[in-house]
Each structure stands twice: as structure tokens, then as C-alpha cells.
Design a protein around this nucleic acid. Structure first.
Lengths: 253, 253
DNA sequence: CGTTATTTTGACCCATGTCAATACGGGTGG
DNA sequence: CCACCCGTATTGACATGGGTCAAAATAACG
């Protein structure tokens, strides 16, 4: 697990510290299979599927498109905790109210399952429980990585790590150039990385100027020199042995 | 749950985003009770009870003293994910290797339980499972709060929030003045808040100069104007309805 | 009581934030 | 299909919070 994984779970995984049930590729009795019977719904951006503070009635499975997970501070500033992609579950297993607002970034396509039914299923299957637990742990780990990143890294590293994460998320291979789709606006990226729009924009321009990337409109970025980009990102990455597969939690009583 | 709770779980709770099994006040069949039969050990600072990267063999219960939870980045920079206090569990339920180093800040007194035995107990009791799940969720929530804090707040807010958290952790009441014990060094605080030692020191000096606090040596701080301190901290706090008791998780699949 | 680590303070600088002005691009209506 | 418009992105000029480097003061410890 390298630095990019740290941010974006793993291949087929999730990029954000908020949502990471990603790696579960359903056997039969998977968490995803619980949604199979539900009807699919479609929302256009920027319509939210849930609001921070509202009663938490459902668990969601995102089938297509892309969501941002936000929270708002008292003074109105917005923080983005992460993004969700097709295949992700938006799962609210422990609160009576949603802790964040999840808004469509692109047109989305999703299913929802009443919370009590989801809990019922999970309560009856130790297999599902194990899945859920493992993924909560992965998510915890991702959140820790994000803490380190926000606390200790410079703007250019954050932007590079973010871009690599998007690439990885899309299953891009290692060989340059890699063209990626960035559906989020610069403001979303800024709020996710703890920066301002201007800084994000400037860092991207700088990368472009240095020939590390090129663009095709703001939502289409070509990573020209993966090696160098990885180098920059690695300066930021939490140290980890190669091949460590799972995460650790500190739980304090 | 106000901003201080957000950082420090709740009364009798834990202050850090890494360890938050705090609120469990054992009935009978509590997670803590699992440790009752184990012998207690004592370590002097700064001796670690576990190392990042080592095989994860045990789960710990801290009986006395104070620990810091750290991770190290490739370039050697250290990040502190949180602190643990007497009563906390240091629990590593999902990884084969410890994900962080936990070092004694003060002389500590703790018990350890082999991981497989801990897992065995938890697997047999839905009650323990529920406890564990709830606390993992609380911890997740605390980690999210820390993300917002590091991404979006100024140095003075971080320091004030930290001090209030220590006070709360110690069960201090609301009425000024409140004298608190800060066992950690300035460097620990800095690494926790994503700042430098100098900045932490300067912010504390500034608070002193403004009459909001006074000190009795670097480890003894008297909060003179709780109201004003809370005000400063609140500017930083994630918005939350009063009285929300539990947390939410986004888990993405 | 001396020695060393920690904390505090000072001077300076740089990365990033702020405010403001274009430029661009995507969508709409003619 | 083109022209216009509006939201978003980029760029520039400037301000500043916090980092860096260095020194002095204080606390911890033998």
C-alpha cells in the first residue's frame, strides 16, 4: 500500500476518508447484494441524497456518478470529507441523524435501503458483520491518512496526491501518460484538501508549466510523468512497508 | 455535543481521533472487563507499548498515565494522531501489524490481552460487538472532526480547542478559572495540531497576554475565561445540533 | 548546583490566503 | 451553427499567518 492507496483505499477502492467500503467485491452474501431488490433512483447535481442533521433513515448504494461528502461549520465554511464513486455504499450505521450532506457532483444513479433493514441483515450474518467491520477499519485508516496529510503537507503535495488518487481510483496503470477525468470543481477539490480555489488552480498551473501534467479543459487532466508525480506525492506519504494489507484501529475506552 | 466534545469524545471520553472507546462505562460484560485477569505492567516515558509496523499481537488497556499515538512519514516528520488517557483501550482489531507507535508521555500502568483472545470474546458476545462498533463509530466521528479542524481552522483556534479538550477530559466544570494539567510537551501538541512548537508557544503566550489563561510552568495552565475561550473555539467547531448523541459513518463499498 | 532539554522570544521570510480582474467554457436561445 | 451569458477557472498584485532559524530564558534532572 503506497501513499496513493493510503488516500484512495485500493484498486477499485475509495479515495476518501469518509467512505471506504470499496474493496468488497461481492461474493454472494455481500453488503452490496442487500440492495439488489431496491429500485434505482436518479438525481441531478447538485441535489443531495441526504442532509447533515436530518433523521438517518436509509443506507445508500451509489450505482453511477459521483458524490461529495460535506459538512458545514458554524461560520458557514464547508469542508469536504471525501468523495464517493459508483459502487460505493453510503452507510450511516451508527447515528440517528445524518452526519453530513452527500451531494451529487455528476448525475447519479443509486439505490436506498431502510436503515433498520440493513441493520437487521447485518445482525444476522457474521459474514456481513466481518465485511462491515473490515471496511469501517479501512475507512478509519483512510481518515488517519487524511489527518496526517492536512496537518503536515504542502499544497503541491496535496494536489499531486489527489490527482494520483483519482487516477488510481479509475484503475489507471502505471505507465505515463494517464488521462483522468476530474468531475469535481476546483472548489470541491480545495475544500477537500484544505486549500483555496486559487491555490489549487495555481498548483495545477505550476504542474502544467513544469510539464508534469497537461489538461484538456479543467475536468480532463493528463498525467504526463507519473514517476515524478509519485515522487512528489511520496514525500508526503505516511511511511508504510510494502504489502501491508489491512489497517489498525486505536479504540480507546 | 459541542466543539470540545467533537474533539474529545465526551466526559470521561477520549480526546483524540484515534482512540475513542471512552464513553463505555462498564456494566458487567464490558470490553474493559476482559482485561481484569491480566497482570498490570509499568513503562516509563518515552517507552512505547507498540511500534508502527510490528506484528499486532495485543490489545491494551491503559490504567494510568498518558500515551501519544504517532505515525512517522517517510521524511521523518512525525504526526500525532491523538492521545490516550487512563481508562482508554488501545485496540488494534483489524490489522496484522500495528499502524502506529504508542509512546508513554508520563509513567504508565497498563494491561495487555492477546489479540486472538480479545477477538474471540468479542465474537461470542453481541453485546461486546455492539460496544465495539459504537466506539469505532465514535472514533470515526472524532477523526472527521479532526480533519475539518486541520483543514479549516487557524492556529489560535486549534490551541484553544486543544486546551478546552484537556479541561473537559479532566472533567473540569464550566466555571472559570479551571486549572488543567498538560503532561505533553509543546512538540507533542504541535505535532497533534499540525503546527510548529514555536507557533504553539506563541499562541499560548498570546492567550496569556490577553488574560484568557495563566500558567504555572509549561505543564500547568489555568483557563481564566472559559466563556471567551469557548467562543474562540466555537468559531472552529463543526456545526451540530445540541444533543445529538451518536455518530454517523459513511462507508463506501 | 550545574548541565541539558524544553520553552519562549525575536527577526525574517515564504507559502498560502485575499481581493480583484480577466479568460475560458459549456449551455442556451436566436 | 453561431453568438451571447453566466458560472467556473485562471492569473495577478498584495497581505499575512505561520514557518524557519537563531538566541535567550526557563524548567527538569541528576
Amino acid at each position: 500500500m503506497d501513499n496513493v492507496d493510503a488516500m484512495f483505499a485500493r484498486a477499485g477502492g475509495n479515495q476518501n476518508p469518509v467512505g471506504a467500503l470499496s474493496a468488497i467485491r461481492p461474493s454472494q452474501d455481500s453488503l452490496e447484494s442487500l440492495f439488489a431488490a431496491q429500485v434505482a433512483e436518479r438525481f441531478a447535481p447538485p441535489r443531495p441524497i441526504c442532509w447533515e442533521g436530518e433523521p438517518a433513515t436509509h443506507v445508500f448504494q451509489l450505482l453511477e456518478g459521483c458524490l461529495r461528502i460535506c459538512r458545514t461549520m458554524e461560520d458557514g465554511r464547508r469542508a469536504i470529507l471525501g468523495f464517493s464513486y459508483a459502487g460505493d455504499l453510503l452507510c450511516i450505521p451508527a447515528s440517528d441523524t445524518y452526519l453530513f450532506t452527500a451531494e451529487a457532483v455528476t448525475p447519479i444513479h443509486f439505490r436506498r435501503l431502510p436503515r433498520h433493514r440493513f441493520n437487521g441483515f447485518v445482525g444476522e450474518s457474521s459474514h456481513l458483520r466481518a465485511q462491515l467491520h473490515a471496511e469501517v477499519c479501512r475507512e478509519m485508516r483512510a481518515a488517519q491518512d487524511q489527518i496526517i496529510r492536512l496537518g503536515r503537507t504542502a499544497a503541491n503535495q496535496r494536489v499531486v496526491t489527489f490527482l494520483l488518487g483519482v487516477a488510481q481510483r479509475a484503475g489507471a496503470c502505471m505507465t505515463s501518460p494517464v488521462e483522468i477525468d476530474v468531475p469535481f470543481g476546483r472548489l470541491d477539490i480545495a475544500d477537500y484538501l484544505g486549500l483555496t480555489v486559487e491555490t489549487v488552480s495555481r498548483e495545477i498551473s505550476k504542474l502544467k508549466h513544469d510539464g508534469l501534467i497537461s489538461t484538456n479543459g479543467p475536468h480532463r487532466i493528463i498525467l504526463q510523468r507519473m514517476g515524478r508525480l509519485r515522487e512528489i506525492a511520496r514525500m508526503d506519504a505516511p511511511e508504510r512497508e510494502p504489502g501491508i494489507s489491512r489497517h489498525t484501529l486505536t479504540v480507546a475506552a
